[in-house]
């Protein structure tokens, strides 16, 4: 009996140990980062393509030439409220971080102290980016104005407030492979990079499972808006019937083919995509045309989630 209990205890310990080990952060090694140095000039457009300012500027900041990344925007989700931190180059922000710290934050979702970041920060898209691009982005970020604002804590209830549990989430849902595979033209490949990695379009346009993992089988097929303001549209070819030229025009100006103007978070996205080259916008459109067509998941009744709504 005693032996049995002891072996059971040992097994439990072993299990806990294994769980602890597999949920440990997995940063990019110093060796992989050696010899990489960022180019701030190149980083400016990558910063726009990655949409960093959309979430990290202070709430209600009008678009400015040099964004102040002081944080403070609140993101209400079913798991709690996330508050964007200060990522400006200041002591309260990321001014004291090394390039490796910043690259690992963006591409692995790991803090300099080895803590997991919640997936509200789209590292599960940025993990598909080129290390050199993120190094350039980081170099540009260091040229932006500093802010002395203190980062505010997230408001996340138990059990999601256990950071280590994000390690389990990563085990289940982190995916560093592109969703769309196969033989792609150089333009489609560029578009895939902009949409899946930097643009992190899937974060809002792909439905999630009960634990917040992206349902990659329904990639870009539309999803309820996390803040509860309606539904983010299906942008697979089954939902988005626009021509490539019409997609390009919307990414450039915000005007849809019906000459409505996109709103919500998409207005902030257009503030970023309008800075890209026409070539890059065309690449995004070319990519969206080869995404697997998926019918939208049925909207929940009574959510005002209709596909035929008029503005007003």
């Amino acid at each position: 009996m005693r032996t049995a209990l002891a072996s059971l205890g040992a097994l439990a310990l072993l299990g806990a140990g294994a769980a602890w080990w597999v949920t440990a952060p997995d940063p990019i090694s110093a060796a992989e980062l050696s010899g990489i140095s960022g180019d701030a000039t190149r980083g400016e457009i990558l910063f726009a393509a990655a949409g960093c300012a959309s979430c990290h500027v202070a709430p209600d900041t009008p678009a400015a030439d040099a964004p102040v990344l002081s944080g403070g925007q609140r993101f209400v989700t079913q798991f709690g409220t996330f508050v964007a931190p200060n990522i400006s180059p200041s002591p309260q922000g990321v001014g004291n971080w090394t390039d490796a710290d910043l690259i690992n934050a963006v591409m692995r979702g790991v803090s300099p102290e080895g803590q997991h970041y919640y997936p509200a920060f789209p590292w599960n898209a940025y993990n598909k980016a080129d290390v050199q691009d993120i190094a350039d982005l980081v170099a540009y970020l260091r040229t932006l104005p500093p802010s002395a604002a203190e980062s505010l804590p997230h408001e996340i209830p138990f059990p999601f407030n256990i950071r280590r549990s994000v390690g389990g989430w990563k085990l289940l849902f982190e995916d560093r492979d592109f969703v769309v595979q196969g033989d792609l033209t150089p333009e489609q490949t560029r578009g895939r990079y902009l949409v899946e990695a930097l643009g992190h379009c899937g974060e809002c346009h792909t439905p999630r499972n009960a634990l917040g993992g992206l349902r990659r089988a329904s990639w870009l097929a539309g999803a309820p808006d996390p803040a509860g303001d309606g539904h983010n549209p299906n942008i697979t070819p089954a939902g988005l019937k626009w021509t490539e030229a019409q997609i390009v025009a919307m990414l450039q100006s915000g005007f849809t083919p019906e000459f409505d103007v996109v709103g919500g978070e998409m207005a902030e996205v257009v503030a970023n995509t309008s800075q890209l080259s026409d070539e890059d916008r065309r690449a995004m459109a070319a990519y969206l045309k080869i995404v697997t067509p998926v019918d939208s998941p049925a909207p929940k009744p009574g959510t005002g989630d209709s596909s035929a709504e008029e503005a007003g």
């Binding site: 539309g222 303001d229 983010n232 549209p233 299906n234 103007v261 709103g263 919500g264 257009v270 709504e309």
Partner: peptide, 21 residues
């Protein structure tokens, strides 16, 4: 100038219009 009008439309839609399909 049309681009600026689009931005003005978008600024309002950003905060005051529900996301839709």
């Amino acid at each position: 100038s049309l681009g600026e009008v689009g931005k003005a439309c978008g600024a309002c839609h950003q905060d005051y219009r529900e996301a839709d399909e």
